[in-house]
Simulated scan of single mutants.
Amino acid sequence: MKTIALFHVLAFFTARHDQAHISFVHEANRWFPEMARLYHFTYDSTNNWNDLNDSTLSHYQVVLFLDARPDSPAVRAAFERYMERGGAWMGFHFAAFALTPSDYPDDWPWYHHVFLGSGSYVSNTWRPVSAVFRVEDPKHPVTRGLPPTFRSAPSEWYRWSGDLRRNPDIDILVSVDSTSYPLGTGPKPSEIWHSGSYPLVWTNRRYHMVYCNFGHNDIDYEGHTNATLSQTFSSAPQDSLVMHALQWLGRRGDR
């Protein structure tokens, strides 16, 4: 008997520049199809951002941004329409990056300042290490049933110009627990966090979306092999969080 798919997912990626992001994209494009078979959804992925259009999006309940965001004004407009009309989205790590000047400037105000609420990138930890996650909203479907704290897979962690805690549209689901500190190993002192409040997973109450700060694998840059040294989908509680989020988004569930 053929199983009917509960929802359909389309993932977009670039996978061109940073080997850590390329590694994560390849890992995600192996992991999500495995989850699709277990949880009865379909998963397609593409590096053609022009597929982010009204016609293609009409066939999908959830869109993923694995490692970037679109640059074309027409494609950006199509994504805005999709979200305003009730579409669902999950983004990982570099999908929220914006820094002027850089190859990914802060030139999409709706996406970075309204939709994500994070604004521009400010700094990051280094090198990729595990953090202790603290669940801030245990009643949300994305975090329901997870331990109050748990250890994540290694990643590089970003901080932002936008104060997410002061944004009434933002529901912070997971943040860095104080037992994580010091977080990062350097070598630069600025790459090690010793204190502070850092949201890592959140949703915007005005949209059906979830952003996850993780998605940067550790890479052997020093040895010049570019070998992958860590996996993003290697923490069982974190993996559960991702699947809770995807199922909540795909089924258009309420709180």
Rank of each mutant, 00 (worst) to 15 (best):
F13V: 03
L57P: 01
H26E: 00
S58A: 10
T46E: 01
N47V: 02
A11T: 06
P33H: 08
D44M: 02
D51Q: 15
S45R: 09
N50M: 08
N48L: 02
N50Y: 00
Q19P: 15
R37V: 07
A5Y: 09
P33G: 08
E34R: 11
A28F: 02
A28C: 12
E34S: 11
F41V: 01
N48W: 00
E34I: 06
R16M: 04
N47T: 03
H40E: 15
L52D: 09
A20V: 00
N48C: 05
A15I: 11
D54M: 12
L38R: 13
F13D: 03
Y39T: 03
N53M: 11
A36W: 04
R37Q: 11
T56Q: 04
L6V: 12
A5V: 00
H8P: 08
P33A: 08
N48V: 06
L57T: 01
M35D: 08
N48M: 06
A20Q: 09
V25Y: 04
N50S: 09
L10E: 02
F24Y: 13
A28L: 10
F32T: 03
M35S: 10
R37I: 04
E27M: 03
S45I: 05
R30Y: 14
V25N: 03
S23Q: 13
D44T: 01
S45T: 08
